[in-house]
Design a protein around this nucleic acid. Sequence first.
DNA 1: ATGAAAGCGCTAACAT
DNA 2: ATGTTAGCGCTTTCAT
Lengths: 332, 332
Amino acid sequence: MVSIKDIAKQVGMSPSTVSRVINGKKYVNPEKRAEILRLIKETGYVPNKAARSMVMQRSFSVGIVIPDTFNMFQRQLFSIIERHLESFGYHTLFFFVKSDEASEEECLRRMKSEQLDGVILIQEIKNPRFYSYLLDMGLPSVCTTFAYDRIPSVHVDEEQAAFDGVMHLLNLGHREINMVNGAGVNFGLQRAEGYFKALASAGLPRDESRIVYVRSLTAESGMYGMRELLLRGGRNFSAVFAATDELAMGTIRVLRDEGIRVPEDVSVVGFDDIEISNYSIPRLTTIRQPLLEMGERTALMLHRSIVNRDAVESDAVLPYRLIIRESTARVG
Amino acid sequence: MVSIKDIAKQVGMSPSTVSRVINGKKYVNPEKRAEILRLIKETGYVPNKAARSMVMQRSFSVGIVIPDTFNMFQRQLFSIIERHLESFGYHTLFFFVKSDEASEEECLRRMKSEQLDGVILIQEIKNPRFYSYLLDMGLPSVCTTFAYDRIPSVHVDEEQAAFDGVMHLLNLGHREINMVNGAGVNFGLQRAEGYFKALASAGLPRDESRIVYVRSLTAESGMYGMRELLLRGGRNFSAVFAATDELAMGTIRVLRDEGIRVPEDVSVVGFDDIEISNYSIPRLTTIRQPLLEMGERTALMLHRSIVNRDAVESDAVLPYRLIIRESTARVG
DNA sequence: ATGAAAGCGCTAACAT
DNA sequence: ATGTTAGCGCTTTCAT
């Protein structure tokens, strides 16, 4: 592998000068610079990242912490974040964590060993030590899709968004509305709260038995959730609010298998607006999270707090939007 | 950040000894070892990866090259590969590449700078220099989901799989079968070949106008492709073979919008068997690629060629399987 | 404008 | 069994 020394030797200059050229520093004779640049291109020289990151005490990389079972929304989100991070000159390291103690611990270890410039969390970590570590190290971080006090975050007003989704159902005349929700995630609680508040605004009681909490946010879990609801109350509902689009797809699948038509018999509202929601049968009515903007803001926010370590970033609460498509209809 | 020196000082030993303990080498007094281990735990010491990778001339990381617009099958695949790689002790770096020259070039640069232990390609790279680089550097690599001469690969027999998919349609009595295919990917060509061979085996002519090539492998592109086919020949078909499940979803969407029922009016076969294919309406008949096994074999193969640099790995051609669900039916 | 030298944190060869 | 030393490739004072 060709190194900075090789280049230096070939042009008869010192490594320092070559380093200056590479880093675009001043105080280099334009002619020498040109020659060095030419040689760099010619030899295909590329700086060794480990060496550079050792001496500079930073890695030019940011870590993205994401559940190993990330859903499609999260997948789309991290692609966007990755793209923006790249435009700021960072590389991206993914840390897939399972939601158990050991995995979070391992993730922490890796993060330490990597000399990260910053961290983005797309997953609520259970272990409080995790956050303490970030804070103690003064490691720039931002949370996205959820909020954590003391770490800046980018998200939507979950509760209000859920409220609006359920209001849409209410406006369509639905009164018996179930919810399929994710367990163990904070936004699940917030979305449930919005759901209850909307019902309350229509004078409907808070009925916990109308919510089922499932372990993951996938279609598979959605099926499980809907079956459970059917078991609990039979067909005592005319609408379902699902905490994610994937959950909604599973819900619709079960309904369909039971011979219940969507939206003729039962209306379904999702949350996220992932790509296929616009292609599925029926197209899904859902609450769109502003994916592009969330990704952009997240990357920007992190970049800013890396560049200016003691600037305090404030949370960005972005606008969501109810997208009405085919899975909801006036109550029959 | 606590370093190996700090640990050494605190136990009154040399850094070498500490290093030996960390790396589980022999020749260290059990008591000292225990004490050092204790201190490591106590201080939360974690080795600096950059330093280690500089002196050892390797990074303990493998790069996964994947299209920036990766589809769901690829997403599922890389999750699995990542998991296995981790179990072998590697970290995973993702290289998202667009399919343009500049992006491939940039990817190459990054790969050089990272001192990778190995590379996995989930994407056919256009630029031959890319492969040359891998080969010249003696960098262990494996291709997955496609084959490249001179680099070991893990894949299914694309042509035969496509053949079987189309045979299923033929067996159902279909004779007018269209294909929605991905442009610019090698396996697209192979799947087309299987499609033609199946048709030929039923005495049907090779009609290029029945294939449409679309730019990506998404549902969006699938819609585009189906519309184009409709434009070309109207309803001159009773079945469609789509080169990926996502393409199939888009295809079905357009059909539905045209009032054409699946499978009553038109049968659709996909390829991949991604998760939602089992939840979509209708559930998709498709050719399953052995995701788990492909991921495992890919990781294992790479690991072996890293450990044993001059062992020659042979291609792994894994068994696919036709999964018959609801999107295909006997011709009406 | 340029070079010499030190040092980032670690491992490995060589002593002992 | 353990310490000493050199050096991985680079950036960054500090001289000049």
